[in-house]
Design a protein around this nucleic acid. Structure first.
Length: 524
DNA sequence: AAAAAAT
């Protein structure tokens, strides 16, 4: 999204506060070579939006937003989407991914009008914030078109959303939960939805949304065009793509800039009780424009944010337990520059695109190493130098090692003046407590299972046996009328299926419920 | 362990 991003920052700054317009590559497109000077001849060689086949109203909106050159994923994906092809995009936020589907979708949809309750296109996003971001994109690029959109997300009045749906929308942007909810209440028909976007598929997977997504895709016509985006192509994601897409054009774009070259990192080991003070020192020491501070827990977000405000910082909280209206207004205030510090959970670790972020602070070391990469990836975009500092406590060596192993390089240790720097502790720490319960589990598991009277092999065969015998009964010509009726209602068919195994004569002990669960001592 | 998403 470098073209989009770099020009969106000044656009915002015009509205509100000062975003540093220091970017060397202000008009930059291909982020692959950030060191190259913005040479005039080179610029000529870059593709132009006007060559992509978008119609006048859309082109005009692009012009007005100050973009001339598409990013690599935009240049590659837009023509294929316009052709009606499915697209599999391996790209993350920061590459211009969103516009690579919103622009051609607007083009395709601009031909006709929506009908009541039947959205013509659907975009699935993992978080509400991302859904809002996509909606903004539609508003911006679609301002010279008469297309309607609806944002279908949780935490907001359903009545209003239903109202909009009833009038008919061209674009439906949704998080999975609310969409399914509304569908099940009958407020929505997806049979006419011929364009589908599944965004951030890898994150949907992490968040356990895939069953929901499968359900939603099942509501759509198989005669649809699908665009599927993911930052990674793990085997599981590949499997999903194969399931949802037909003959897709696969487009892979690399990260806008390598993390290493544009992000200056640092890590300080401090006492847990000193973390808030250490963070304040860091915040005051750095020439910070705006910063995100990540915490691992929602309640720590609240506590830390309050503390920062008390110490005179311009800070606002963001996590999933806050009211939706507050989530959006806080994010807006941060984007506009009104708020300098966003204290948040991992809700904002991925995807959210905030231009010109100068600093990221990890108040806690993230539990998963990949989250570290996602978190610090919020800064150092578009060729600018970003800063990412992490506070660790002495017992978090393992977490930090995991990060350093993943990124392939150590995080330079830093000292914070006035705060004592500690060493990693060599105490076995929490592992002790866990080993205790593990031992308990290991010792408990085999013994009670052997205590179950029937050997497992027999017990498993015993399960289908009663069903078979009942089925055989139902097939009996002169069976009792009541049981015949009941059985014919319960059992699918094949009354003449041959009786196997024990037939009607099932030994009584085998019909007893299996007991092994109750045998395991409940001492946890 | 935590976070996200439906009420």
């Amino acid at each position: 999204m470098s073209a989009k991003k770099t020009s969106s920052a000044p656009a915002r700054s015009a509205k509100k506060a000062a975003a540093p317009a220091s970017a060397a590559s202000t008009d930059g497109v291909a982020p692959t070579d950030t060191s190259a000077p913005a040479d005039a001849a080179e610029q000529e060689a870059q593709p132009l939006f006007s060559e992509l086949g978008l119609s006048e109203p859309i082109q005009q909106a692009i012009d007005e937003m100050g973009y001339r050159h598409p990013t690599p994923i935009q240049a590659q994906a837009i023509p294929y989407v316009l052709m009606g092809r499915d697209v599999l995009g391996v790209a993350q936020t920061g590459t211009g991914k969103t516009a690579s589907f919103t622009l051609p979708m607007l083009e395709i949809l601009s031909g006709s009008r929506a009908r009541a309750r039947m959205p013509r296109s659907l975009i699935l996003e993992p978080t509400r914030e991302l859904a809002l971001q996509v909606a903004e994109n539609f508003v911006n690029y679609g301002k010279h078109l008469k297309l309607t959109h609806a944002l279908l997300i949780g935490g907001e009045s359903m009545a209003e959303q239903k109202e909009v749906l009833n009038r008919g929308v061209d674009v439906l942007i949704a998080t999975p939960g609310r969409l399914i909810d509304l569908f099940e209440r009958g407020g929505l028909l997806l049979t006419q939805t011929k364009l589908l976007v599944i965004d951030e598929a890898d994150r949907m997977l992490d968040m356990g949304f895939i069953p929901d997504i499968e359900k939603i895709v099942g509501m759509l016509s198989p005669l649809r065009q699908t665009m599927f985006f993911s930052a990674t192509m793990a085997p599981e994601i590949r499997r999903l793509a194969d399931m949802f897409l037909r003959n897709p054009k696969e487009i892979t774009v690399s990260r806008p800039s390598s993390v290493a070259s544009t992000i200056e990192t640092g890590l300080a080991i401090v006492d847990a009780k000193e973390k808030r003070r250490a963070l304040r020192k860091l915040l005051r020491a750095s020439d910070m424009q705006n910063a995100i501070v990540f915490c691992n827990r929602k309640r720590d977000v609240d506590v830390l944010c309050k503390s920062l405000i008390k110490h005179g910082f311009s800070a606002g909280p963001l996590h999933g337990d806050l009211a939706q209206s507050l989530r959006f207004s806080t994010l807006e205030a941060f984007k506009s520059g009104e708020l300098k510090i966003l204290v948040c959970s991992d809700i904002a670790a991925r995807g959210i695109d905030i231009g010109g972020l100068s600093h990221v602070f990890n108040f806690d070391v993230p539990f998963h190493a990949e989250d570290y990469v996602h978190r610090i990836g919020r800064t150092g975009r578009a060729g600018r130098t970003g800063h990412a500092y992490t506070l660790a406590t002495p017992d978090e060596e393992a977490l930090v090692q995991a990060i350093e192993k993943l990124t392939g390089k150590p995080i330079p240790r830093i000292e914070i003046p006035g705060v004592e720097t500690l060493e990693w502790s060599d105490e076995p720490r929490a592992a002790n407590g866990r080993r205790k319960s593990a031992r308990k589990g290991n010792a408990a598991a085999p013994a009670p299972q052997q205590a179950v009277p029937a050997p497992p092999a027999v017990a498993e065969e015993a399960i289908p046996a009663p069903r078979k015998s009942r089925r055989a009964q139902g097939g009996n010509a002169g069976g009792a009328s009541t049981s015949t009726r009941r059985d014919s209602g319960l059992l699918p068919s094949a009354p003449d299926q041959p009786v196997t195994g024990f037939g009607n004569d099932v030994p009584a002990f085998m019909q007893l419920p299996r007991r092994e669960k109750s045998v395991i001592p409940a001492d946890e």
